[in-house]
Design a protein around this nucleic acid. Structure first.
Lengths: 228, 228
DNA sequence: AGTTGAAATTTGACTTGTCTAATTCAAGAT
DNA sequence: ATCTTGAATTAGACAAGTCAAATTTCAACT
């Protein structure tokens, strides 16, 4: 399978399944085109190819959007495992910042072998998440999605820990990193402007103000058992 | 530039210049085809493309073989740097054996960034050679080729050190590794069968017999100043 | 129900890299 | 000087992936 196939399947997973792994949703052609930076017709013809394979990797209904088949999902999750292991390696061992890992991993994920990946995983101590706190799928494609809570819903005064930051924008990532808002950081919400305004936080030892756009991408790790 | 371009330029370098960096030689179309595992016509059309670029990367004469231009040589040496740094990393940090590094590096060399490479180089302590003892070009394409002597010409009883092993065959590499014949190993030639027969060696502490095919790929590091 | 507008699809073309089959070339042998 | 032969090149085709332009389809609103 080629690199383009990796990209389409990964995008299909991230758009259709990642937000709610329990209920996959069909993804529209145009949505994929936007995410992948290609034209509508390109998506259309690729989806046709992917659903004509044996076994089919996507389930594509005329004018009805597309969804991964189990085989396609497995493929996507394997790509995602490679991507996230690479990101972790780049950050921990090669000195990349968390806003720099994505681009490099996006190129490497298509060519590293299973052998390479598993050697990397061993070396990194079997990390559970990547530098953004995204969970790393197991080699067999199984994925543990930890319970979490959006920062915007946190109650004032309750200590919490950053779990995941769902954002690919470098600018915003650097802004967050400058304030210490990276996975693992401990924080307390001190005050909240009404109607989705900015948040006043204590992150580790430092008090800081956070714009609402920034707050929207931060998710907190919930200790097992609790829920929103 | 694409991966195929990397491959053609690298092969052109390794066939035409690597054996004698001082006097580059033209490489025949069929020779390239064999080395790259593609057909003659494929080589022909690619050479045409590469010599039509601005600046041209190869100097290709009708029915006269091809040679790298300075721009093409620089490109080839950069690919080679990436390849050899990756090989070194795979061996030292990911537990690959020296007969396993080539395939993986061949895929990675096309996609790793300059940034990645230099981070790797720093991490590895700026290695001068790869796991086979091949010199690693500098970032600017300059290359230091150490003086060396084929094992077949070594005098009996003179202590020497393995420098380079010019062989891509996995079987032979494993055979050599099993006898300790890897770069850095100290050895003494104990006896030589006449007319290119096998060699009796002491490698480090162990005495071993070596077939002539195996002997032909081993080169010895010469201390500065000496020569064949 | 009919119309319309947005989204999806089809059509046809282009690029890169490859192949096989046919042709041309250069050079050594006669 | 020509012939033969093997290598190199041209010609033509294909597959993957992309695009822009034209067309079709669905669905939503009169």
């Amino acid at each position: 399978m080629t690199e383009a196939v990796d990209d389409y399947l990964k995008a299909l997973y991230q758009l259709g399944e990642e937000p709610h792994p329990a209920l996959p949703r069909r993804v529209a052609t145009g949505e994929l085109a936007l995410a992948l930076g290609v034209s509508g017709p390109s998506v259309c013809s690729m989806l046709k190819r992917l659903s004509a394979l044996e076994p089919p990797l996507v389930d594509s209904a005329r004018h009805g959007g597309a969804r991964l088949t189990p085989a396609g999902r497995l493929h996507a999750l394997r790509v995602l495992r490679r991507h996230r292991l690479l990101e972790t390696f780049l950050q921990r061992e090669l000195g990349y910042a968390w806003d720099e890992v994505h681009e490099e991993a996006d190129r490497l994920e298509h060519v590293v072998s299973e052998r390479f990946c598993e050697a990397l995983a061993r070396r990194l101590g079997g990390p559970a998440t990547d530098p953004h706190g995204e969970p790393i799928p197991a080699p067999d494609g199984s994925l543990e999605s930890p319970r979490e809570l959006p920062l915007s819903l946190l109650a004032e005064g309750v200590p919490a820990r950053v779990g995941r930051v769902t954002c690919r924008d470098g600018e915003l990532l650097r802004y967050l990193a400058a304030r210490g808002l990276q996975p693992g950081a401990r924080l307390v919400l001190l005050a909240r402007e009404p109607f989705g305004g900015s948040l006043k936080l204590r992150v580790e030892e430092t008090v800081t103000e956070l714009g609402p756009a920034a707050g929207a991408v931060v998710f907190l790790a919930l200790p097992d058992g609790e829920d929103a």
